[in-house]
């Protein structure tokens, strides 16, 4: 009984939209009315779109790796602090309270080639100007900045959950700090790492606002192309087909990651 409202929610906001995506992706409208067709799907495999898809995965992958490299040591430091580093954690989470668009616009004005704050400072110091707006570097930077908290939080939680006496047992059995990190801390925090990767990679690979603003529209990622189908060319069918392909690839990559996680004897992640 208690479950029904959630069931209704799922049907209305998840199942119905999914069915509609399938519907638009597999039908075409012409003079004879609406009919089943694979036209949209075939068009999606055009190299132009596949390149955009590839770039999306590459940048999202790079952003995820950078997030992981930044977040893991940070989470370790936070957990080690006497009060659980709650004040520091708060500061790292704080940007999440600000509007996503606002944060991205802020980076735009920081990085702007001519009047941006960063380059004004660099110029004043007679250093070479950094011209990265409109390049993949800016996009990856935007992804890392926006999604870093999603990597820090699950790793922090996983680390905080490890019993202190387990860490002491590792010491007791002769493991120094480095060996303990390698053999106990990292394996036990793998569930957090896996959720972090999922929570950063998924929004990064589908992002269109970050490439739009920080890529100044010069770098077309799959998110941008899908957005254009719905808002510029009004080709909903093609947009739906691209979304579907993106979704399937994400599902496959998550399944592969999950499998490798199980091989490493980690616990359950997001799946």
């Amino acid at each position: 009984m208690v479950g029904y409202p959630y069931l209704i929610w799922m049907v209305v906001f998840i199942v119905v939209p999914l069915i509609m995506i399938f519907y638009y992706a597999f039908t075409v409208k012409d003079a004879n009315g609406t009919r089943f067709a694979l036209d949209h799907l075939m068009k999606s495999f055009d190299s132009k779109y596949m390149v955009a898809l590839g770039k999306s995965f590459l940048y999202a992958f790079i952003a995820t790796v950078i997030c992981l490299i930044l977040a893991y040591p940070l989470a370790l430091i936070l957990v080690k602090r006497s009060n659980g580093g709650s004040a520091m954690l708060f500061i790292f989470i704080l940007p999440m309270w600000m509007n996503f668009l606002l944060r991205t616009y802020a980076w735009l004005s920081l990085l702007e080639t001519n009047n941006g704050l960063l380059n004004t400072v660099l110029r004043a110091l007679h250093l070479p100007v950094l011209d990265i707006i409109g390049t993949p570097k800016a996009i990856v930077l935007g992804m890392v900045y926006n999604f870093l908290p999603f990597m820090v939080l699950p790793i922090y939680n996983a680390l905080a959950k490890i019993d202190k006496s387990i860490m002491e047992a590792a010491y007791d059995l002769g493991a120094n700090d480095f060996k303990r990190l390698l053999k106990v801390t990292i394996p036990l925090s793998m569930p957090g790492v896996m959720s972090g990767i999922t929570m950063v990679f998924m929004p990064a690979v589908t992002s269109f606002v970050i490439p739009n603003l920080l890529g100044s529209g010069k770098v077309n990622l799959i998110g941008n192309i899908i957005e254009q189908q719905f808002l510029l060319t009004y080709d909903w069918g093609f947009g739906a087909a691209l979304s579907l392909i993106l979704m399937i690839i994400i599902l496959i990559s998550m399944a592969v990651m999950q499998r490798s996680d199980e091989d490493m004897e980690g616990g359950a992640g997001l799946w």
């Binding site: 019993d163 006496s165 387990i166 047992a169 010491y171 007791d172 059995l173 036990l188 004897e265 980690g266």
Partner: peptide, 21 residues
Amino acid sequence: VPPYKRNVNTVFQKYALFPHL
């Protein structure tokens, strides 16, 4: 001297076995 350099071993109150092993 840190614990990992002492020839002493401990049986912890809550056992503290490694759950991933």
